[in-house]
Simulated scan of single mutants.
Amino acid sequence: MDFNNGGREAILRMLEAYEVSTRKALCERLEISTSTMSTRWMRDVFPADWIIKCSIETSTPVEWLSFGTGSPKPPQKSLGIQSANKNVLADLFSVPRKKNQRWEIIRFKFLLT
């Protein structure tokens, strides 16, 4: 992976992932300055940090954002397939509220693994 080029194409794919039409709108979504965007655009520097943030926020695959290969949308889970744990909520239970010595209400929650 060459981080010194390919930035423009990646930025264009991020525009599509965030469903915005301008680089300025993308700057607002990424919470970066327009001068930072301009520098990376003009120098064609690959924006790896933005790619990761975009992938997390939009659920767009990193492979598509980085290289343009694969699908821009994550694979949809089939509703007919059950998880390995049939009753996920059975692993999480709550203990009724208890009062401590200062009479403050506390909640206890436990996650069984």
Rank of each mutant, 00 (worst) to 15 (best):
L26S: 00
M14H: 03
N5Y: 12
G70Y: 04
R29L: 06
N100G: 07
V95C: 13
P75M: 06
C54Q: 06
Q101H: 13
G70P: 05
Q101G: 11
S35W: 03
I32N: 04
T58R: 04
N100K: 09
T58V: 02
L112K: 05
G7W: 02
P96R: 05
I81A: 14
I52M: 11
R8M: 05
V88P: 12
S83A: 14
N100H: 05
S78R: 10
R43I: 09
R23A: 00
S78C: 10
A90I: 07
P72N: 09
E104M: 08
D44L: 11
T36A: 15
L65D: 03
V88D: 11
R13F: 02
D49K: 11
S78P: 01
I106K: 06
L111D: 05
S71W: 00
F67G: 05
S78I: 08
L89K: 12
T69C: 05
Q76F: 01
E104D: 10
R43Q: 11
A17Q: 02
M1Y: 13
T60A: 10
T58A: 02
T34H: 07
G80F: 02
G6E: 07
Q76K: 14
T39V: 13
G68I: 09
P96G: 15
A90R: 11
G7T: 04
R23C: 00
A90V: 09
T34N: 14
F110G: 08
A10R: 06
M42P: 00
F108D: 04
F110I: 09
A25N: 01
K86E: 10
D91L: 12
M42I: 13
G80V: 07
P96D: 15
E16H: 01
S71E: 15
E31D: 14
R13G: 05
V62H: 05
L26P: 00
I81S: 09
D91M: 09
T58S: 03
P74Q: 05
D2I: 15
W103A: 13
G80S: 14
W41Q: 07
M1N: 12
E31P: 01
P72W: 00
I51R: 01
Q101D: 15
I51D: 02
R97M: 08
K24V: 02
F93S: 12
I106N: 04
R40T: 08
Q82L: 11
A90L: 14
G70K: 07
R97N: 09
P74M: 08
L26D: 00
I106M: 09
D44K: 08
V95A: 12
L111H: 04
N85C: 07
P72A: 04
S83Q: 12
F67V: 10
A25V: 01
K53N: 07
S83H: 07
F67K: 09
N5Q: 14
M42V: 13
L92E: 11
S59R: 10
R13Q: 06
T58E: 02
W50A: 06
S83W: 03
P72K: 04
G70M: 05
V88H: 06
R40G: 01
A25R: 01
L89D: 13
E16V: 01
